[in-house]
Amino acid sequence: MIFFRSQPGLVAYVTCGDPDLATSRAVILSAIDAGADVIELGVPFSDPVADGPVIQRASERALKNGTRLEDVLTLAEGVRNSRPLTNLIIFSYLNPLIRYGLPKFVKRAKEVGVDGVLAVDLIVEEAGEYRLLMEKSHLAPIFLAAPTSTDARLKKVAAASKGFIYAVARTGVTGAKTDVRGDAQQLVKRIKKSSKLPVAVGFGIANAEDFQAVGKYADAAVIGTAIVKIIEEQSAKAASPEAVAAAVGKFIRCVKKTT
């Protein structure tokens, strides 16, 4: 079961293995302790078409040091053991999951204590087998809803999703600036018409002000690029995993405090 303890909830995205797995672990634990309700463990991919330059670079760094899906699952297991109550989501492009083997992936994800999975390039219509497997293992399939999605599509997304619905704040890739009162607010309103699930808004939520604004109309906000950027800047200064983690924790506290 995925739930948001705080209102609005905070979902933190981290590209796992950037710059290494030890740092990812420290950052994730620190994010949880700073009040993140859900952690999205990003699986690095060679061709991240939905991502802007910051997460692209993070993926490249993670792949350069050989991070695999298996490593991300092991990382999830470690986090689960240290923080039993946090919601953990695997956030991935589809191909690494297919290559690992969907049935094997779902089984292993359940074993290590993952709660849900978001496959960025998997739309509801192509997700037949995936949904069956997830359902059997009681994992939450999370799908994206976009400002361009028709109402008919939003209904399908709502019917197929569990845990929460991820509302993409604007057309575009991750990282670019978002007007959180534009497309996103409209979209959340439309989703709420066909679903009782919590809605998390993501893509371009960068600071306390955005977070607060989203919190007025949505159940949660996803912060990705802003966190990945801190990790990038800190590791460029050769900071220790603990120092990187502390910087991320401080940022999250700062984002949450103002609400």
């Binding site: 390039d121 739309i123 219509e125 994206l144 976009a146 361009t148 028709t150 575009g172």
Partner: peptide, 14 residues
């Protein structure tokens, strides 16, 4: 074949 894209592109593909 099929369609493996972020949801944002689906309306355009349809």
């Amino acid at each position: 074949g099929g369609r493996y894209v972020p949801e944002t592109l689906m309306a355009a593909l349809e």
